[in-house]
């Protein structure tokens, strides 16, 4: 596959990922990952220092489903939504590795709107037997390590 085709497919994957979260189709969100995967939300500083913990850490698609289910029926938080703006993916040389910048604006129930997170997705993607491109690894490396009290919806 040419780099141009790869970039095209990655851009499509990123756009679909963002659209699913922003439209509150969170049940679709785990499907963008492989069964065994790594999804971690961390900060640039933690990433640079090699600290392994994240504010969200999931090593299976099932853990991502649990997070969605928890948000739907368990957790207490105020109604809110995101708008992702994702950049053009950059291929990292290593096969399947790419990175993509993102910005997320959050709008709260009362209309308060804020720049909620900015950073880079460090991704490893694979093509499944069904031909679909999925994340085997998505590290959400936020530029800031200071988070609003409530990171409910996945980034």
């Amino acid at each position: 596959m040419s780099d141009a085709e790869t970039l095209f497919r990655l851009s499509g994957l990123n756009a679909a990922y963002a659209a699913a979260i922003d439209a509150d189709r969170l049940e679709e969100w785990p499907n963008f990952f492989t069964e065994q995967c790594l999804y971690k939300v961390t900060s640039a500083d933690n990433h640079a220092k090699g600290y392994p913990a994240g504010i969200i850490f999931a090593d299976s698609q099932a853990m991502l489903r649990d997070r969605v289910q928890s948000l739907r029926i368990a957790n207490i938080y105020e109604r809110q939504r995101y708008r992702h703006i994702v950049g053009m993916p950059v291929l990292c040389g290593e096969p399947g590795a790419s990175e993509t910048a993102f910005v997320i604006v959050r709008t709260m129930r009362d209309g308060k709107m804020e720049l909620f997170a900015a950073g880079v997705y460090l991704d490893k993607t694979v093509t499944g037997s069904d031909g679909a491109l999925r994340f085997a690894e998505r590290l959400v490396v936020c530029d800031s390590g200071r988070f609003d009290t409530l990171v409910a919806i996945p980034l």
Partner: peptide, 27 residues
């Protein structure tokens, strides 16, 4: 054990299944 700590950390912090609620309730 280290892997367990990383997974259990999902309970706490700004996105923690538990701590996000403590963070919100003060507000």
């Amino acid at each position: 054990l280290r892997a367990m700590r990383l997974k259990q950390a999902n309970l706490v912090g700004p996105a923690g299944f538990v701590s996000m609620e403590d963070g919100a309730v003060g507000g």
